[in-house]
Design a protein around this nucleic acid. Sequence first.
DNA 1: TGGCAGCGCAATTTCGAAAATCCATCGCTG
DNA 2: CAGCGATGGATTTTCGAAATTGCGCTGCCA
Lengths: 262, 262
Amino acid sequence: MDWALNLERIVLSLLRPMEDVLPLSVAPTMPFVAHDFGQTFSKSSDALRRIRADIVAGKLQPGQKLSFKFLVTCYDMGTSPLREALCQLAGQGMVELESQRGFRVAPVSRADLEDVIAMRAHAEIYAAGLSITRGNDAWRRNLGDASLAFTLVAAKAGDQRPIDERWEEIHRRFHFALIGACGSPTLLQFCKQISHRYDRYRRIAIPVQAVMAGPAQDHREITQAALSGNSKQAQSLLRRHIDDMAGVVLERYHRGAWMPKD
Amino acid sequence: MDWALNLERIVLSLLRPMEDVLPLSVAPTMPFVAHDFGQTFSKSSDALRRIRADIVAGKLQPGQKLSFKFLVTCYDMGTSPLREALCQLAGQGMVELESQRGFRVAPVSRADLEDVIAMRAHAEIYAAGLSITRGNDAWRRNLGDASLAFTLVAAKAGDQRPIDERWEEIHRRFHFALIGACGSPTLLQFCKQISHRYDRYRRIAIPVQAVMAGPAQDHREITQAALSGNSKQAQSLLRRHIDDMAGVVLERYHRGAWMPKD
DNA sequence: TGGCAGCGCAATTTCGAAAATCCATCGCTG
DNA sequence: CAGCGATGGATTTTCGAAATTGCGCTGCCA
């Protein structure tokens, strides 16, 4: 295996944003970046990405009122693109819309967390099964790269660095590389949306990288099973991986339940 | 069983719109209706409902360009609420948004149809299983009512009346009564969205009620299995029901594939 | 003192116009 | 004559202000 070439491909793939899912950044997307990758960005889509990222990162807290006065000064744009973004986020369950009374960040609750965990597990495991059955060589290569990339950034035990956007992106890339060949755009979109909701819980419950050291090993095992076409084993490993993480998140949620903020 | 009281309850339940899913009407929702049922409506939500209904009914054809000039005159409102509605519909896969190039009705294709069918079947059957396990008496009563209501409006064989909004609403009400106790808001919302997409295909493929006479019997059998708590049997009946219908839709689609319109 | 109607402020929602972008056409150049 | 860049019109996108709605306060009345 040509190590240098391999690394280069991985690095390049990390630089390229994963269409509309990954760019989690608070800074506005640069126009030239958008154009370079064949996708035009508007203020609306920027608003969508930035607000979602800030919700997932916990900068906008669960239950927080999102007044337009506040948003206009925060994100430096008119109400129209903001409203558009909030509407889409409402459809994804990231914000709540009460007619004539504005928007607020979707509150957190044990019931919602359990719902999110159950749906994410079911959808992602199902998609993984399809993907492993249907995946071709390009998919296998991409999965290998994503897994390796995650290994490279994975924390050592005891690492107290906070989880940041880069870590999130690489982590997310692995999970979507795994299910990317499932063949169903609808299922993929559902997985994207539910994972954003899940990530918010995980991100608030597990702010530092230390706890996420174990998953690197999980990812490698899942990758191995997936690449060898053993979909049953990959699915059960994935289920264990998701359950383990969900257990930690649930337990932490139960202890220090986050309060809505007004 | 008190027949008159039963009928009255069913009729009443039919008059009440099923929150945001059912009101499929081209006329704007009356304000007093909105207030009466504890939900305020805005022009945006009206636009959402009306446009979605028109897409499902085929009045807005697959692939059709949705220019604001056209929409503003059609729906008699400004661009803001229309834009908001279109954004949400884009998130639900009913319209496509190409940045800076406007909106168009989501095109139809065999691949999309197969995706929609597969996802609808998987999600709805899964939800039905959960619902039957978790449902309480209120759920059973509601399911019985919905099934009976559908029986009452179901067509006799050879009925050439076109499928209208009322038929759609009662049909939809049955399917959601079945899965209503699944316990997962997220899963329910997914089922709602995917069913709208599926309904569009079915509605264009099967414009008259005649073909939909068989399903009434299916519904009764499914209800019976569900009410007796036999989730496995209900699921397999539901699967057969969905597969049968999907087969007809697919076959008709294949014969007379609808062309995009500009 | 408790309750309710009316009033005024603040916030959302909607509109109409300005700005930015795209597309087709035309003219120029090699 | 083909290819490329500029120009004009049409459309989308965004903004700022008007209109509408909700909410809290005050004052009146029982």
